[in-house]
């Protein structure tokens, strides 16, 4: 176990190296020149050349990369070139990251609260109608294109008429709800967070339901369950104490892996609900070719992903004593 963790820790900087080189290359060789973006399309070519030299952008790739890494190691992630002109990227992320983390945490909590019981029920009543219904609803909810939600939700919430039938319209009108979902972001505890949290939770619900269902089905066929039943334990005790606990182990793993995704904002959801999180910044930066921002966010997400993986590997040892003895 010790050497395993050591190997994992040694691999971490290597992985970050590859991720950063790839991102750096994509940013550098991608369309759009940051200097051109900065100065506008009709800039004087001499000025462009001078600024390129000033920023070291005329250096060969590896020199630029080494400079970038040096700066990053000193805590300098560069400056935003476009939308948040001249703001240090580090501060930009520090400002917007908490919002995304809060939103994602809420989504994970909601996902656990809904997904685990759903999976439990579906697993217990396998192939009965309730299992089929749960599976169908779960698959349907992850299949729904988020791009469809935008027009649909704006159609529902931002129009006076829904059905174009005067009397019926008054009955189903959601006019009073409108201020609750539109307008500026007021934090995760305001009603405005309900829709984005629910949308982001659908993925969590789907994954956890599926795992919990499969886990229950697998555990219920184990010998110790038969033993527990044979010795006359009540069914409720068998399920809660013997089956559910073991089926929850992979759930803990999955939730651990999801923690790695905490720092990655869903850019579609964030931009549509006007959530000032990192997802929206990434989205804007991508289209503006604001590549220091993209670089920093990609590195952050990669780091979180790797750390979450490491955390999960460590947790296995605590949860399942059989693994601790190995290696």
């Amino acid at each position: 176990m010790g050497t395993f963790i050591l190997r994992r820790l040694l691999w971490l900087p290597v992985l970050l190296f590859f991720v950063s080189v790839i991102t750096f290359a994509l940013g550098l060789y991608g369309p759009g020149d940051p200097v051109q973006v900065m100065l506008g399309l009709h800039a004087n070519p001499e000025t462009v050349a001078r600024i390129r030299q000033e920023y070291g952008l005329d250096e060969p790739f590896y020199v630029q990369y080494v400079n970038y890494v040096k700066n990053v190691l000193q805590g300098n992630f560069g400056y935003s070139l476009v939308r948040y002109r001249d703001q240090p990227v580090g501060r930009l992320i520090a400002e917007h990251l908490p919002v995304t983390v809060q939103l994602n945490l809420c989504a994970i909590v909601v996902g656990i609260l809904i997904g685990v019981p759903l999976g439990l029920i579906a697993g217990l009543y396998r192939d009965r109608w309730i299992d089929l219904a749960v599976r169908a609803v779960v698959i349907a909810s992850i299949s729904l294109p988020i791009i469809l939600l935008n027009p649909v939700l704006s159609f529902i919430f931002f129009r006076e008429h829904i059905v174009f039938v005067p009397l019926l319209d008054r009955l189903v009108s959601i006019g009073p709800l409108l201020p609750q979902v539109a307008g500026r972001w007021e934090g995760v505890l305001s009603p405005k967070a309900i829709l984005p949290v629910l949308i982001e939770a659908t993925g969590v619900i789907a994954i956890l339901t599926r795992q919990m269902r499969a886990g229950m089905i697998e555990v219920l066929s184990e010998d110790y369950i038969r033993t527990a039943r044979a010795k006359g334990l009540r069914e409720r005790v068998v399920i809660v104490r013997h089956a559910m606990r073991n089926a929850l182990i992979p759930i803990v793993t999955l939730v651990g892996l999801m923690l790695g995704g905490l720092v990655a904002g869903s850019f579609l959801v964030e931009s549509w609900f006007d959530v000032p999180g990192v997802g929206r910044i990434a989205y804007e930066a991508l289209f503006a070719r604001d590549y220091y921002v993209i670089m920093a966010l990609t590195l952050l997400i990669a780091l979180a992903y790797v750390l979450a993986n490491l955390l999960v590997d460590l947790m296995y040892g605590f949860l399942d004593p059989r693994i601790r003895t190995m290696g």
């Binding site: 691999w11 290597v14 994509l26 991608g30 369309p31 990655a264 990434a282 790797v306």
Partner: peptide
């Protein structure tokens, strides 16, 4: 597997967008 690890560490759909936007002019 390490190559796959590197790809997995990138942020999902945003990375696809990034790649698409980058290779398009090329």
């Amino acid at each position: 597997m390490r190559l796959a690890d590197v790809l997995f560490a990138f942020p999902g759909l945003l990375f696809v967008f990034f790649v698409a936007a980058t290779i398009k002019p090329g």
